[in-house]
């Protein structure tokens, strides 16, 4: 089981390698990736340095080009695929079907991974991507329950990668328009949910207000945990009560399911967080490395250590971690 780790900078990539990553995924510094924040990601010079450090350790480098091109900007997305191919990245992680087609035709030897943003949730969808484009691996959307993941894995001829840990969103992967509703920019087209230019924190007598493009979306009392403001995690007054209407800020943690995921034949576990610092990457990667090593150890019974749970909880957005949709028996 491969551990696929996030890096938004060279020090984060180093931290991932130092603490047990099998593969690291990065993005270029523009809207072609879904973590398009100021000061984050890799220009060509740093991408080359990233590759050198990956090769020196015998690990893999994936490049996420996982947003959707607009009709007038397709060449920029094509250029990103060409740059990843020129870099000899081990794979590109793509969502846009036109871009997948381009990558297959232009770079026949480049391994293609289907991004979670492509939102492929059924066996026939995965098989279509494999037959048409030779997609080698798919990252499964976080809407699937464990039982559904098991059903997919039993029949899939595509390698499957699932999310292990990271901030959760409302899981309408590749289809969410809430951010653009308020700010005019969305993850799928602009690579950013709640662009920082639209975010405002205002300290008031009663606590901290957060606004998105001028729209009040939450208010925190003095010692209440805060999250990065996204519309889905805002609190609104409905039926006279102020509450999380869409969802609470929460992080996914599927560590407890590692034995089942291993038995199912899942090839890779993905950790979220390219926007986070090297300190986060170091702590979270080290914890997952220990857990995966433990689950792969033959003849031992796996249980989640308290120390691991604490480290992950500390690095979580929101107060809690959850098994997310993996644990929805009604699905």
């Amino acid at each position: 089981m491969e551990l696929v780790c996030p890096a938004g900078s060279l020090p984060a990539l180093e931290a991932a390698l130092d603490h047990g990553a099998d593969a690291v995924y990065i993005g270029f510094s523009d809207a072609t990736n879904a973590r398009n924040f100021g000061g984050l990601n890799f220009n060509d010079k740093n991408a080359l340095r990233a590759l050198e450090r990956i090769r020196a350790r015998g690990k893999k480098l994936f490049v996420a080009i996982n947003t959707y091109a607009k009709p007038d900007s397709f060449t920029r997305w094509q250029g990103a695929v060409d740059r990843a191919a020129a870099l000899s990245a081990d794979a590109v992680i793509l969502a846009d079907i036109g871009l997948i087609s381009y990558a297959r035709e232009k770079h026949p030897n480049l391994a293609l991974h289907l991004s979670v943003q492509a939102s492929a949730t059924s066996g026939p969808a995965l098989e279509f991507y494999r037959q048409q484009f030779g997609v080698r691996r798919a990252v499964l959307p976080r809407v699937l329950s464990l039982r559904q993941v098991q059903q997919l894995a039993a029949a899939s001829r595509v390698e499957l990668e699932v999310f292990g840990f990271g901030s959760l969103c409302i899981m309408a992967e590749g289809r969410c328009h809430l951010s653009s509703y308020v700010t005019g920019e969305s993850p799928n087209q602009n690579g950013v949910c709640s662009p920082a230019r639209a975010v405002e924190w205002r300290n008031t007598a009663s606590g901290l207000e957060t606004r998105l493009n001028g729209v009040l979306i939450d208010h925190f009392a003095e010692h209440e945990n805060a999250g990065y403001p996204t519309l889905c995690k805002g609190r609104f007054i409905v039926d006279g009560k102020r509450q999380h209407v869409l969802e609470e800020p929460t992080s996914l943690n599927s560590m407890a399911l590692l034995p089942e995921l291993k038995a199912t034949g899942i090839q890779a576990i993905k950790l979220e967080g390219r926007q986070r610092s090297p300190a986060y990457v170091a702590q979270v990667v080290r914890t997952w490395r220990e857990a995966i090593d433990a689950v792969l150890e033959p003849g031992t019974e796996f249980s989640v250590k308290d120390r691991w749970r604490k480290t992950l909880a500390k690095n979580s957005e929101g107060k809690q971690t959850t098994l997310g949709a993996y644990d929805r028996p009604w699905q």
């Binding site: 901290l208 925190f220 003095e222 010692h223 209440e224 945990n225 805060a226 999250g227 990065y228 926007q275 986070r276 610092s277 300190a279 986060y280 702590q283 500390k314 690095n315 979580s316 957005e317 929101g318």
Partner: peptide, 9 residues
């Protein structure tokens, strides 16, 4: 991690 400290206010 600065984000962690930020979430914790």
């Amino acid at each position: 991690d600065p984000d962690t400290l930020f979430f914790q206010r």
